[in-house]
Amino acid sequence: MSGKHRLRTALLYAALTLVAVIVLLPFVWVLFGAFKTQGEIMAAPGAWLPQDFSNLANFAELFERRQFGTYMGNSLIVSAFTVASNVLFSSLAGYALAKLPFKGSKLVFGCILAAMMIPYIALFVPQFFIIVQFGLVNTLAGIILPIAVMPIAVFIMRQFADSVPDELLEAARLDGAGEFRIFFGIFLPLVGPAIATVAIITFLNSWNYFLWPLIVAQDQGTYTLPVGLAVASQAARSIDYGLLLAGAIVVLLPVLILFLFLQKYFVRGVAVTGLK
């Protein structure tokens, strides 16, 4: 490697490191803030580092007194069911729309696209009426149902399904395989990255879901993490920043872990669908 080239690489890395540090600073502040007391956070001028890193009082408060264990359990259930149901139904729908020509399939796909355009807030009150009619108020099922099959997930699966060669499916059909066998045995293994993308998108959506779970829940036993965090961080005419930041870490951690493991699929999914 020539000296000039090496210098250019070094400069590039220095610039990238600088930008990375700037981007990461707020997250670091959140992380440090989670170990601070309200007084430390409000103090002027504030210090970057907490006085005591072993101060876990904020985390202890969240889990021991503010029901964060319950909220986390609810969030995990909501997200697990949302991801599973979206992956199953959107891949079925995507396969049918792309590979099984039927009368009106274009219209169905058009309707799904149209559903993506409707702001979620416009559906809010009618959706709540439906949930009330179903008797699902204050249940996790009531929280999950409206996002059990997201139009965006169907769209992604349909786009991916399009790229699966028809010849493969035809060959299987000639060999006498049924549609479900083809779907599970041939189609699904080929669309792994799409499944990962749908899983990540629906997980993020359901994990960060705020207003709807709040409306459906009638007591704190049914709150999910974001709702619980909003409640726990309230202080008298103020905000308890220590609890808010510690709670943010708790909410963020599973997302971060998921992203680290599935990063490869996520990038590939984005590249293929052109969606972020």
Binding site: L211, L214, Q218, D219, Q220, V227, A230, V231, Q234
Partner: peptide, 9 residues
């Protein structure tokens, strides 16, 4: 039975 609601919402 007291339910705490986020004040913004």
């Amino acid at each position: 039975e007291i339910t705490q609601i986020p004040s913004d919402q």
